[in-house]
């Protein structure tokens, strides 16, 4: 069996296309590269969707935490505190068992007990809380002169937010937000280790890497392959966010651009 056959059989295995059974013996390097790469589909799925949907909630949370309304402020503050103060691993477990018990009373919630919806929901809340805190910090750091200039131009309400507050907030928060995005993608590897079932062995990259390590009792091949895939993904992310960063800073002179610095990671 050539490597191309293996790719045809297992390349989309993680979403249920191709061969039904996972390889049981004679694991070649090609098997490992193909299946682990196939699992990356789930990591990208969780990461991208959680990041884009979480971005909207994060903006709302940041505005809520800075709001003048007592209840809105407290609500956003507690949401951020709960999701940042507890381990993501425990959040996954809690959410899974919560959805399991809710399912008995509300049948329409049953998709939430499977990973594609339930884990995505948890990741969405989690990243919204972390980025919300980043955006809140940036919101507090907006130069007063910018706001005064906006006032002087007679801007108010939504147009002031859309043209001045929001772009400045993003610009200030962007380096930290880039890191948050990278850690979110790393955090997606936890999904299938936290009770969410990998239905018909459709798992993510770490699920398959762990499968190979268990079967061959040799961790020195699957995990470095996984690491390679993730380093590649991280580089792509840094590149994409760097492009967005250039766009955000386009009106500033070159030397004033905020550089994206890869900082200490935050495990959830």
């Amino acid at each position: 069996m050539t490597c191309l056959d293996i790719i045809a059989d297992y390349g989309l295995r993680s979403i249920g296309l191709g061969e039904r059974l996972l390889p049981r013996s004679d694991f070649t390097l090609c098997h490992q590269f193909t299946l682990i790469g196939s699992g990356m589909i789930w990591n990208i799925y969780f990461g991208t969707l959680a990041l884009t949907s979480g971005f909207i909630l994060a903006t709302l949370l940041a505005l809520g935490k800075a709001s003048k309304n007592f209840y809105v402020r407290k609500l956003s503050g507690w949401f951020i505190f709960i999701f940042r103060g507890s381990p993501l691993f425990i959040q996954f477990f809690f959410a899974y068992f919560l959805f399991l018990s809710l399912k008995q009373n509300f049948t329409f919630l049953s998709p939430l007990t499977s990973a594609w919806a339930g884990a995505l929901f948890v990741l969405f809340c989690n990243t919204a809380a972390y980025s919300g805190e980043i955006f809140y910090g940036a919101l507090q750091a907006i130069p007063k002169s910018d706001l005064e200039a906006a006032d002087a131009y007679g801007m108010s309400g939504f147009s002031r937010f859309r043209r001045i507050v929001w772009p400045t907030m993003l610009r200030l928060a962007w380096p930290a937000y880039t890191n948050e995005a990278i850690f979110l993608f790393h955090a997606t590897t936890l999904v299938f280790f936290s009770s969410f079932p990998a239905w018909q062995q459709r798992g993510d990259a770490l699920y398959y890497a762990n499968y190979f390590a268990d079967k061959t009792f040799n961790p020195f091949i699957p995990y470095p392959i996984l690491a390679g895939y993730f380093i590649f993904l991280t580089l792509i992310l840094i590149g994409l966010f760097g492009l967005a960063n250039r766009k955000l800073n386009i009106h500033l002179p070159k030397d004033k651009h905020t550089k994206i610095k890869f900082r200490i990671r935050l495990i959830r």
């Binding site: 790393h186 955090a187 590897t189 936890l190 280790f193 770490l206 890497a209 762990n210 390590a213 009792f217 961790p219 020195f220 995990y223 996984l226 690491a227 993730f230 380093i231 991280t234 890869f262 200490i264 990671r265 495990i267």
Partner: peptide
């Protein structure tokens, strides 16, 4: 720098077997 580009949980799963072996 290596620990920063790769998910930490992969390291946890890797080192436990690797050190044992």
């Amino acid at each position: 720098s290596i620990v920063r580009g790769v998910p930490d949980i992969a390291f946890f799963l890797f080192f436990v077997i690797a050190i044992d072996q």
